[in-house]
Computed example of a mutant assay.
Amino acid sequence: MEGRKAAAVFITSPTYHGICSNLAEISKLGHSHGIPLIVDEAHGAHLGFHPQLPNSALQQGADLAVQSTHKVLCSLTQSSMLHMLGNIVDSERIGRCLQTLQSTSPSFLLLASLDAARAQLSENPDTIFNKAMELAFEAKHLIKEIPGISVFDLASFSNFPAIDPLRLTIGFWQLGLSGYEADEILCRDHGITCELVGTQSLTFVINLGTSRDHIQRLVSGIKHLTGTHAPIHGGKGRLQHSGCTPFADIKMSMIPRDAFFASKKKVSIAECLGEVCGEFICPFPPGIPVLIPGEIITDKALDYLLDVRNEGAVITGASDPLLTSIVIVVAHAMPPIFCRLTPSPVIIINHQHTSYPSFNF
């Protein structure tokens, strides 16, 4: 890319588990070169509304921030906001771009719920999250005292400046349980539904609707779980996934667009190794692709997919959710010829495709 200037820096912060990047330093660096900072702040619509919460992206100098307001605040599902700050990004151009994408028949229920969520925050902006913060710290304290259970905290990621205290990630690897198994037990026996299932952990979100009864039921359910699954001697469970193992050797044979339009065929799982993947394959939750079109199928990626499938993950995107077969690109198949655009590059930091976390904390 010599001689070409980056169009923007794009960052996901916080992550699904609440890990925050140092946006203030990144925005300062980008702005010194006239480059805007765009933040996917889907899980951070509440940030900045309590002294113990990390600052929001805009408070740290971001130029654009996209928030899924419904994830933590009290708007309806599918409602979100795009925030702008400063004059590096042309607001009129953003407006024109939105006009090409947005419906001319928006849902006024969603719009009204966004306004209601905004009004709720504006009534008591300094105290609205007091109860939620209190319950979050209480839950972490009680759960840390349960033998065989690990609680993810900032010490696990000391290189990052902050973590959202309203995210509660609990590890079950010392019990020899996968996150999928723990989730099934807690849901079936205690009616507890988590926000995110991982290979060795579950993530819960404390929000404005959380009550002390919810926390007590969660703690009680985890205690019951440890009572039926004693910690394994030496603290080593049977699950020893390396968090980013499937992504350590990513090799792209084609750009995703070319792979999408290329001729493809379905082959058995035993025949796909080393072939070019022709579809998105995403364990869900959280729905982060392990393989994308154009990527070479490796041993590590395949083993990982089969492992999480066997542990109970739902495979989305794949034409065969049981993973007995995978769609691959036919060798030497060329896509149809379309006009190729060469926009300025965008720097992507913490792109979730390169980080499918499985905490061993």
Score class of each variant (00 low, 15 high):
residue 9 V to E: 06
residue 11 I to M: 07
residue 11 I to C: 12
residue 13 S to I: 09
residue 13 S to E: 12
residue 19 I to V: 10
residue 25 E to G: 15
residue 33 H to M: 13
residue 34 G to R: 08
residue 39 V to L: 07
residue 45 A to H: 05
residue 46 H to V: 03
residue 49 F to Y: 15
residue 51 P to W: 06
residue 54 P to C: 07
residue 59 Q to R: 05
residue 60 Q to K: 14
residue 60 Q to G: 09
residue 62 A to C: 14
residue 65 A to K: 09
residue 70 H to P: 04
residue 71 K to P: 06
residue 72 V to Y: 15
residue 74 C to F: 13
residue 76 L to F: 11
residue 77 T to M: 10
residue 80 S to C: 14
residue 85 L to T: 11
residue 89 V to Q: 12
residue 104 T to V: 08
residue 109 L to W: 07
residue 112 A to W: 05
residue 115 D to K: 10
residue 117 A to T: 07
residue 119 A to I: 06
residue 123 E to G: 06
residue 125 P to S: 10
residue 132 A to G: 11
residue 137 F to Q: 14
residue 139 A to E: 11
residue 139 A to Q: 12
residue 140 K to F: 07
residue 155 A to C: 14
residue 157 F to W: 13
residue 171 G to E: 11
residue 174 Q to Y: 07
residue 175 L to P: 13
residue 177 L to C: 10
residue 179 G to W: 10
residue 181 E to R: 15
residue 187 C to I: 11
residue 190 H to S: 09
residue 193 T to F: 15
residue 194 C to H: 10
residue 196 L to H: 13
residue 198 G to C: 10
residue 202 L to Q: 09
residue 204 F to R: 07
residue 204 F to G: 01
residue 206 I to C: 07
residue 207 N to R: 10
residue 209 G to Y: 04
residue 209 G to Q: 12
residue 214 H to G: 03
residue 218 L to M: 03
residue 222 I to R: 01
residue 223 K to V: 07
residue 224 H to W: 14
residue 235 G to C: 04
residue 247 F to E: 02
residue 249 D to S: 03
residue 265 K to L: 10
residue 266 K to F: 01
residue 268 S to P: 00
residue 269 I to Y: 04
residue 270 A to N: 15
residue 274 G to H: 02
residue 275 E to A: 00
residue 277 C to F: 01
residue 279 E to N: 02
residue 288 I to M: 01
residue 289 P to W: 01
residue 292 I to Q: 02
residue 296 I to R: 04
residue 303 D to H: 06
residue 304 Y to G: 01
residue 308 V to L: 04
residue 313 A to Q: 00
residue 317 G to R: 02
residue 326 I to R: 04
residue 329 V to I: 05
residue 330 V to W: 00
residue 331 A to C: 01
residue 342 T to R: 15
residue 343 P to S: 10
residue 343 P to I: 06
residue 345 P to W: 03
residue 346 V to H: 05
residue 346 V to K: 07
residue 347 I to F: 05
residue 349 I to E: 13
residue 350 N to W: 06
